[in-house]
Design a protein around this nucleic acid. Structure first.
Lengths: 195, 195, 195, 195
DNA sequence: GATGAATGAGTGTTCATTCAT
DNA sequence: CATGAATGAACACTCATTCAT
């Protein structure tokens, strides 16, 4: 007879929100944002259309929140406490983490990649992502310099392209492409180089 | 592929069909397939809605034809007459051609890349593309073997990822990213390796 | 949850109900019935959506009850005990009361006026209102006859239209329109006539 | 086989637009703006939903265009060429025209009246209406002055309220209320006064 | 070949109403 | 008594597609 407590409501809310966001991420990743309908998303989540709008202002707001949440989740993987200097060990760990993150968040990476390919959509992820990326890029550049590469800038380009290329190839065919093998190839390649 | 005269090219260019396809490609590349409306495409092409349906059965048929045409146009760049064996010179030429094709067909490559990121859409490009790609991949594998790489398969993975990664990075920011510099980095990298 | 006495319950009921009705009247008067949402009304009243449905069967029932209550409140202003004959003094008092009622219930009058402008909505106010109005109209007609007007029916029409016209003009611009001045004009007009 | 000429298209367009606007005006006047659905309007007009949006950007744009058109239509009734001075004859003619306009545009007047009763909606009709009204008001004030009324401003208030009151009463019950009789009452009233 | 008026199924979104707690 | 999560029908609006001319 008593109304639910505020905590009970809060729990229901976060659970349901999560439910909807997961369904939406899958749908968005599979079909793309515009080809995904609210109808399909709510069916997938097993909720009514109206409920989605209790939690999200609009389809676009839903997309943004998904992008933000996944983004936060991803950066947790990378050690935020280290001193800003990559040892050789940490460099290989970085590569491994990179592919682990991709493998465990294929849907988000697909959605993210498609989004990034369209001009003028960067506001969806925002400055935060760029700043964090910059941080890692400068750490990597530093690493290549310390490892006495002939042309560290060039090495950074090669490295970035390599990681991005494998990621994209994997995303396009996650079931078939042997990510582990590719990962090993990259690590081997650098081990040979820096031995 | 018999060479066409200048007049023939001109005629093709000014055909209404061509007009529509170009407008559609721009629209698709900028907004994505689902966010592009027939209305905007015909407005962009300066023709009526009805005319589009004189030439194309449906929106999807229009997409397929664009993909096919662009695909054909692209493969023209690569020497179809050679003997199936890459010399060192031809390897560097291959890289250059690759980036030239991307630079001159950014719109198509963006559309193509987004399309390829979605599962189960390969029928849009078809077997032909895969076969031709296979052909080049085996030529490249052969090339790496002849150049006595320790692990040619690994080398092929690295090479493919590298090219794909740079392409994707360029597509996302064609105005800013210095494709030429990246191209030089890749070529330098292999020249050093194979010197 | 300490048990409440019957009186306490009763008090809560009337308070909360009053709260909701006031919020609803404001909302209805500002936005119109159809543009007002239950959500906004309950927010305005500071109660939950469920509570509204404890007190009112439906949105329409809420409207009807508001109309009825305001209607009752209004007729209290006019002496219900007098003998059915208007003296000159009472005639001027009637006019004053009329405008006083309007001024103190602008929201209701706006809602009422809009409602009355739509065909086939008279059931919202019901017979009661019409009967009471008839009573006053016949009293007024009688009054004009006693004052030896040339054409009492005509005089009644003029009088009714005058009152209604000023009311409507006031409702459309309550902040700006000088109701008192208009009231004086009407009273002056009749004083001159009947002096 | 030839496409229609521009004139043919233009004719179709204006005819259909008129059709939709008439249906919408009826619907709006009967149900009010918010209670009228696009579905009902198009059903009433006998066209598809899509067609309405070929002609009007939105439901609100449709309302605005109706208001504007009716407004233009109405002011045609009043002689725009006269010298700005009302003779006695012209004064009675003005009253007659007023009621004629109302009788022949009941739907619009109902819609207009309801709209005017809501605060902050004046932008729907715009300055134009107010300016034209002002013009007539000053002409009328002038008229009352020339007719040596004791208090011309007061007389103007009475006159305006009278007209507005009758109009509103008529709109609420167009079938029943004898507008002609009311009109006669008003004219008689002023004839007696100014004889 | 070429036009754009016309269609209607489908989209994102709102909202009165219900109900477990 | 009181809450707000949940529903689904209805809403305004879009868009690929058709067709008379």
């Amino acid at each position: 007879m008593c109304p639910r407590t505020e905590e009970q409501f809060e729990e229901i809310r976060t659970t349901k929100k999560e439910l909807i966001m997961n369904a939406a991420l899958e749908e968005f990743a599979e079909q793309g944002y515009h080809a995904s309908s609210i109808n399909k998303i709510t069916k997938r989540a097993g909720v009514s259309k109206g409920l989605l709008y209790n939690y999200f202002e609009s389809k676009e707001a839903l997309l943004k929140e998904i992008m933000k949440q996944a983004h936060d989740k991803i950066w947790v993987y990378f050690d935020p406490n280290h001193d800003g200097v990559l040892t050789n060990e940490e460099f290989y760990y970085f590569i491994e983490q990179n592919f682990k993150v991709v493998k465990e968040n294929v849907n988000f990476w697909r959605l993210f990649s498609v989004t990034m390919l369209k001009p003028n959509v960067s506001q969806l992820v925002g400055k935060d992502f760029e700043e964090k990326s910059e941080h890692y890029l400068s750490m990597l550049l530093d690493f290549f310099k310390r490892n006495k590469c002939d042309n560290p800038e060039e090495e950074l380009i090669i490295f970035s392209a390599l990681i991005k290329g494998i990621t994209i190839m994997f995303i396009g065919n996650p079931e078939i492409l042997p990510l582990k093998k590719y990962e090993t190839s990259v690590i081997n390649y650098y081990k040979k180089k820096f031995k």
